[in-house]
Design a protein around this nucleic acid. Structure first.
Lengths: 257, 257
DNA sequence: CTTCTCTTCGTACACTGTACGTACTTATTG
DNA sequence: CAATAAGTACGTACAGTGTACGAAGAGAAG
């Protein structure tokens, strides 16, 4: 899993790419593809084949085009992924009008993000810092801030809250994605992995030296289906995070009254 | 930034590597290095040169050895990083005996982790799922669980709480690391980056279409020194997370009484 | 037509991790 | 001591990556 970095290229070009404002070609042979074709093909490939199969050469092959031809439409791999990300967010509804109060809406948004990023694991490939500021992501920012607007928080606090929830979701998704990546790549699932090293580990991590860790470890592993309980773990963390935010909001509110 | 995956190799070999139980060589030429030399050199290199300069060839060069010679001591790059990680955690004190109650101790641990991972950004390179179960990490697990032991939580809940805090810290560190990576690699700092695209963005993300986002964005950017306020942002999120955990602990406690 | 501007894409480069096979070195064994 | 076996050491090579560069060709504008 590779985190890509942008920022090298021409800023105007990048933004035009994201917003789809591209003056039609005037001269020369007509392009046989559009940027949107490339993005669509790339998304399809990345979804289908997984992260490790996603390379510029593979995208080109899937489109029936030579590798270098892609660079006519897209300045680099990182910027291609940026556009992919922005486009993919377009599928997800906005949560600022979802039913319930701000907390219910934040929950809705978090769950949407959680599911969406699992569906498109390549979303984690772009550094969260300096996100691709395309139309869909701009809309999502607007929507997110609206959820926590008018709660008595300062703008900076609002930003912090949104970043906190986003950070939580991204981290949780990352664990899931890494888990399935590691399985796909090594062909060894978690159970086998654990079984293969538990006898050796049992000699190294002994209950008398690590009483608490071994106890907790055993309790957690007694639960069958680590995968099945992932949503519950996600939900647990989400509730704790939102409880913390709620306490903060309540304190701000009381202070005002 | 690349996330490496292990799990391919012989489990016994991996664990012996981590725990340093390696039967001395019996025959053949005496190894001119030890695994520990390789690990030390690799850590020094990774700390000094940054993530992008960290490759097996560079490590070998730094040690004055041919690239392939490393594979005598270490089965793969991923497993080398695993050992590096375990060794590096050895520097950080354990927090279960830190002053204060469980919350103060969790705070201490979170801050230690936060600082330590910033000092050693390559720590984020190994998938958090299936962590390297070496002696130092085992000790840290034991210590972490002791902090939240005897609070009335079930073992699974304890695990969830520790995972939640850890997830938060890792995410926060990731943002910082990615930020400095992107600067080092592109030579463009955040201010320049923003300045170069804000004129174009101003035409695309307009206050009438995105009133809340533009307002919040402006407020956040008014603060000089995004970097300088990172610790504050970290602290903000950490307090919210811990507030959430505290509420949960309190609820469990009340339920019992 | 000529000229200019664009798309297209073959070749090539620098880089990665590491599989494989060979040569060498030494401790153990006969 | 000589033979053997078990190691280490490492050169070469491969498959893969993103993409720089430049040449070739296509179509519109003058």
């Amino acid at each position: 899993m590779v985190t890509e970095f942008t920022g090298g290229g021409d800023p105007r070009r990048s933004l035009e790419l994201l917003w789809g404002v591209r003056d039609a070609a005037r001269r020369g042979p007509k392009p046989r593809l559009t940027t949107e074709d490339v993005v669509r093909g790339a998304i399809a490939l990345a979804d289908a084949e997984g992260l490790q199969a996603f390379s510029m050469r593979k995208v080109a092959e899937a489109l029936g085009v030579s590798p270098m031809a892609l660079y006519t439409y897209v300045p680099s791999k990182a910027e291609l992924i940026e556009v992919m990300i922005d486009r993919a967010w377009g599928e997800v509804p906005l949560a600022d009008q979802a039913p319930g109060d701000w907390r219910a809406r934040l929950e809705t948004k978090a769950r949407q993000d959680w599911e969406h990023m699992q569906r498109h694991p390549w979303m984690l490939q772009i550094a969260a810092h300096r996100p691709p500021l395309g139309p869909n992501i701009a809309r999502r920012y607007e929507s997110a801030f609206r959820i926590v607007d008018h709660l008595g928080l300062t703008d900076v606090e609002m930003e912090n809250v949104i970043a906190l929830v986003d950070n939580y979701v991204r981290g949780a998704v990352r664990v899931v994605v890494e888990a399935s990546e590691v399985e796909a790549r090594s062909g060894i699932d978690d159970r086998e992995w654990w079984m293969s090293r538990s006898p050796v580990l049992a000699e190294l991590i002994t209950p008398d030296q690590f009483p608490t860790a071994t106890r907790v470890g055993d309790s957690c592993r007694d639960f069958h289906e680590v995968e099945a309980k992932r949503p519950q773990n996600f939900e647990f963390g989400l509730q704790r995070v939102l409880d913390g935010v709620a306490a903060f909001v309540a304190a701000r509110h009381d202070a005002k009254v």
